[in-house]
Structure formats: C-alpha cells, structure tokens
Computed example of a mutant assay.
Amino acid sequence: MDNRITRRTLGALLVSTGMALSLPALAQNEIKIGYNADQSASGAAELGLSGLYGFQAAIDDLNAQGGVLGRKVVGVVRDDAGAPPKSIQNMNELIDNEKVAAVVGPTNSGNALAWLHIPQQKKVPVISHVATATDITARYAKEPQNYIFRVSMVDREQLALLAAYAVKASKSKNIAIIADTTGYGQAATKDLQEILTLHGIKPVGIEKFGPKDTDMTSQLAKLKAAGADMIITGSLADATAQVLKSMEKMDYYPGLLSTWGSINTPLVNIAGPKLAEKTIFAASTTEDASDRAAALHKRLVAKHPNMPAFVSAAQGYDAVMLIAAAINQAGGTDGPKLQAALENLGAVQGIIKKYEKPFSKEQHEALGVADFHLAQWKDGRVVKLDDAVVKGLTAADLKR
C-alpha cells in the first residue's frame, strides 16, 4: 500500500514536473511587446486608449499571419494613469519581469522623459506612438546605440506645418500666438517664434493664459487690436476649446490653428460641435486619408464604438508593425540586434504610409512634417483638410 502511494505520488510529481518544465518552453515561444501609456487619467488618456486599440489590432494581424518568426506575439499592457512614478514602475516591470522585446508608449511626454534612461540602460527598444516632446528621441542621439524611436507627431515639425499654413492663409501677415503657461505651451511659443522668424515674420502679439483659465477675452482683445487675422495656439484640447468660446463671446473669428491635441474630444465636448469646426489642427493621418486608414477605422469602431482618436490608433498599429519587421530582420529579440535592425529597416507597410527606411542612426523619427496632414472637425468626425491653401503649400514653405 505504501509502495502504491509512493508510486502514485512519484507519478504525480513527474507529471507536475513535466508541466512545470513546459511552461518556460511555452513562454520562450512567445514574443512579448509592452504597452505603457495613460488610458484613464489625464486629458490625453483617450490618445493612449485609442493607441491601445491600434496596438492590439496589429498584434491580432501578426498572429493571424502566423506570428513573427513562427512565434506568437503577446501584448503586455500597463496603464500609467498619467503619473511619472507609475510609468517608471511599469517600465521596470515590463522589462525585468515580463521580458518584453520592445515597448510602445507613452501618452505623456513628461512620463517618457522620466524613464528614458531605463530602456536605454537595459537595451530594450521603445517606440513612442503619442508623446511629442522633441527631446524624447534626441536625448541619447550621441550614444553608440540610441534605443528610443518614435512614430508620432513631433512638436517642432507640426508647428512648422501650422506656421506654413498661417503664412499662406494670412492676408495681412499679421500672425499671433496664444499659449498656456505650461512647459508645453511655452515651448510651443518659443518654437513658433523661431519658425516665424524663418518666414521673415514677427508675431503681432504673443499672449498666454493659465491652463485652467476659461476666459481669454482680454488676451484676444489685444490680438484683435493688433490686427491678427491668424492665431496659432500652443495648448491642449480643453484649453483650445476655451479660446474658441472666448472668440465666440467677442464675435472675433480669425483663423485659428492648433496642435494635434485638438483631435481629442474635449474640444468638441467643451466648445460644442459647431464651434469646434473653427480650428484647424495637425494630424499624422485621418480616418479618410486612405483606404487602409478607412478599413482600420471601420474595424476598430465596430469593436470600440466610442473610440475617440483614430490618429493614435494608426500610430500604435504602425509602431507594432515596425517592431515586428525589426524582429524578423534581426532574427530574434536580442536588444542590440533589434535596435540595429530598426535603424536599417527596408520597406514596411503601415496605416499612415508605406515606410521606406523609416529610421537611421541619425534619425529616429519615422514621421516628419511632409507626412503630416491638416485636419478639422466636421459633423463630429475628424476629416482631412484639403483647401486651396493646403494645395498651395510646397516643401519650401515648411521651414523649421
């Protein structure tokens, strides 16, 4: 009897051991890609949430084609709630515990700047799919290997597009700037002054406001008195909505140009759908930009009816596809080899465009001003702007 129990126990142990040994084998057969972005807390959370939908759709497509190198791709998702300490914690968990091959994220530039040293030191490539601060990809540009890449708007580049439009559209060349007092707004003001100088233009006014202010009529009155017929804003969607509401109070409607933050629904929710249509903003793509974009939008909206920001979904999708192409080219997920592959990719089909050698050692931005569109809200949807001014823009107009 004791012998039988021993044999049964031993058999159970062998089965148990066999199962335990199979788990690492299964794990080794997967390729993990991390996602670390705000999906719940800050004003940019809907960009992170939409980016997640695109990230997941790309992984689904890869697995439907047999995975990468014959291995299943698994997304490991973390919400950093817009908080730098949480975002740092997530990065450490994704790299040290989950052993991800690469990370897509974050939403907020401040979070990226708080943890860039982690993937750089641990040699894990990151592709920023939303955060726009110029320094994100530039911080380690002089290192032997820079592990930080981006498929998103870049602040200087999108402001160059807005300035080019303003210069072409302005009849008087009286162009003004209004921005919030955050680091983002003041950096935009500095960039815009420099870019307009390249056009030979000095702003007729530069006004600022607090990020929580709701009445900008006094600032706008000064710009109106200065004769401004085009105004460029440096603020997120909620603040730009307040600028529009203040314009409405004054019945003063110069051309208003804003950064891609205006693609967020707070602009429509606060200003109202009709007033929201009075600003033009930068975007890397729109749902009507191409057949591929339209197909992905239709697919994602069917699954997520309230998806707020298609542009970041497209950027999240393309980030995954670029990582997958690099893993294929590197023949595995070794960090230094993967980083080198990203810098030497050939053609990769994305949603925004077909990428032709998107990165190099000197250039870690997959998108530039020539890739960006101007867009606006129409009937509750973001659509591509294609007016006479846009059609008249040339490469020479995009000074930066």
Rank of each mutant, 00 (worst) to 15 (best):
V268F: 00
Y147V: 04
K357S: 15
K278D: 03
L13T: 13
T279R: 01
M153A: 07
Y253E: 00
A309R: 08
M307A: 12
L21D: 00
G54K: 12
K171S: 13
G82M: 14
D180H: 06
A226P: 05
G392A: 11
F372N: 14
F209W: 15
G200C: 13
I270N: 03
A166D: 03
A314V: 10
Y53A: 15
A164F: 04
D60G: 10
L62D: 05
L338R: 06
D288K: 07
K212Q: 11
D371F: 09
L275D: 05
P85M: 10
Y184L: 10
N269Y: 01
V126S: 03
S128R: 09
P106L: 08
G67A: 09
N97G: 04
G392N: 12
M91R: 03
A101N: 06
Q120P: 07
I323Y: 10
S235K: 02
M91T: 10
M216Q: 11
D215Y: 07
D155V: 08
G316S: 08
P336F: 09
L244A: 00
K32P: 00
L296G: 09
N3S: 06
F209C: 03
N174R: 08
D60Y: 10
G346M: 05
L47R: 06
D238E: 12
D386G: 04
P125W: 09
L192E: 02
H297K: 12
A225L: 12
K303S: 07
A239K: 12
P254S: 14
V124P: 07
